[in-house]
Amino acid sequence: MSLKFPLAPEPEFEASEKGRLLFAGPVEFLKGVVAMSGMPPADRIEVCFAGRSNVGKSSLINALTGRKTLARASNTPGRTQEINFFTLGEERYLVDLPGYGYAEAPVAIVAKWQALLKQYLSGRATLRRAFVLIDTRHGVKAVDEEIMKLLNRSAVTFQVVMTKSDKVNNATREANIAQVQAALAKHPAAYPEIIITSSEKGEGVETLRATIAGLV
């Protein structure tokens, strides 16, 4: 299984430079969306970030863009209640999805988020890849399996990005990478490379930038 879902290699210089230039350019918050009717025009390719509440999604988006407050980080799980669109240069959207699981919100609100998430994933033709964030400290949990199954059903290619790699020792890191690799074997929509990241240390940021820049 480890051969089927290897860790993404360091990008070649050309790919790395393409990613650096993309994220060094203009990145702006466009809008927060609470219903499909509010979606911006599907006139450019987009990538989205999905993750369990408190997985470090906002911190990773900030690290990618080099802007400390672009995505609001919060210690309160479930704080992000909208689908947030950011323009990435002239040709891409970067999309921050609501955190799923353990959200400190009323059941009806959570159900509304989940319905919007399903509509977005199944109805956005310009969506090129979903990045599913998994906490390196914990590996794949039941709520992560749910989002992966939804992506399978929606026929959206997804790639796992493991976050907070600097928060575990090597033994835990290796064990949880192996657990993620085994879990991905059950999901046909999974892209066959895992990106390991640390927002604090910068690990994997260059690789993720190059990956996004290479999508057409």
Rank of each mutant, 00 (worst) to 15 (best):
residue 209 R to K: 12
residue 76 T to Q: 13
residue 164 K to M: 07
residue 111 A to W: 11
residue 43 D to S: 04
residue 124 R to A: 06
residue 160 V to N: 03
residue 16 S to P: 10
residue 14 E to R: 03
residue 29 F to A: 07
residue 82 E to K: 06
residue 48 C to L: 06
residue 124 R to P: 05
residue 199 S to Y: 03
residue 149 K to M: 15
residue 21 L to E: 02
residue 133 L to I: 10
residue 210 A to M: 04
residue 155 A to H: 15
residue 209 R to F: 07
residue 151 L to F: 03
residue 86 F to K: 00
residue 139 G to Y: 00
residue 175 A to L: 13
residue 148 M to F: 10
residue 129 R to N: 01
residue 41 P to L: 09
residue 170 N to E: 14
residue 9 P to A: 14
residue 178 A to L: 12
residue 120 Y to N: 05
residue 208 L to C: 09
residue 138 H to I: 12
residue 188 P to L: 03
residue 47 V to S: 07
residue 145 E to R: 13
residue 50 A to G: 11
residue 56 G to Q: 07
residue 29 F to S: 02
residue 39 M to E: 11
residue 62 N to K: 12
residue 71 A to M: 02
residue 73 A to T: 15
residue 184 L to T: 06
residue 168 V to I: 12
residue 169 N to E: 13
residue 110 V to F: 03
residue 45 I to Y: 11
residue 106 P to A: 07
residue 172 T to K: 14
residue 36 M to E: 13
residue 124 R to L: 01
residue 53 S to W: 09
residue 69 T to Q: 15
residue 195 I to D: 09
residue 146 E to Y: 13
residue 100 Y to Q: 02
residue 203 E to C: 07
residue 36 M to P: 13
residue 126 T to P: 09
residue 19 G to N: 03
residue 46 E to N: 06
residue 36 M to R: 13
residue 192 P to Y: 04
residue 194 I to V: 13
residue 172 T to N: 08
residue 86 F to Q: 00
residue 98 P to K: 03
residue 136 T to L: 15
residue 80 T to W: 06
residue 177 I to R: 11
residue 89 G to H: 06
residue 1 M to L: 12
residue 213 A to C: 05
residue 42 A to Q: 12
residue 49 F to M: 05
residue 77 P to H: 05
residue 186 K to M: 12
residue 85 F to N: 01
residue 151 L to A: 06
residue 149 K to R: 15
residue 28 E to T: 13
residue 63 A to P: 08
residue 29 F to I: 02
residue 84 N to E: 08
residue 166 D to V: 04
residue 134 I to P: 00
residue 104 E to C: 13
residue 141 K to E: 15
residue 67 R to F: 03
residue 133 L to A: 06
residue 118 K to E: 15
residue 67 R to K: 11
residue 139 G to W: 02
residue 20 R to E: 10
residue 207 T to E: 07
residue 33 V to G: 05
residue 53 S to I: 01
residue 112 K to I: 04
residue 5 F to A: 05
residue 7 L to A: 09
residue 1 M to E: 14
residue 186 K to I: 00
residue 39 M to H: 10
residue 95 V to H: 02
residue 39 M to Y: 11
residue 84 N to P: 05
residue 210 A to T: 05
residue 93 Y to K: 01
residue 76 T to C: 01
residue 89 G to L: 00
residue 117 L to I: 14
residue 178 A to V: 12
residue 169 N to A: 12
residue 3 L to I: 14
residue 54 N to M: 06
residue 38 G to D: 02
residue 203 E to W: 13
residue 178 A to T: 11
residue 174 E to N: 15
residue 129 R to P: 04
residue 155 A to L: 09
residue 125 A to S: 11
residue 199 S to A: 15
residue 87 T to F: 04
residue 101 G to Y: 01
residue 61 I to V: 10
residue 143 V to C: 13
residue 71 A to F: 00
residue 179 Q to W: 01
residue 135 D to Y: 00
residue 192 P to C: 05
residue 38 G to P: 01
residue 20 R to M: 01
residue 201 K to V: 04
residue 86 F to A: 08
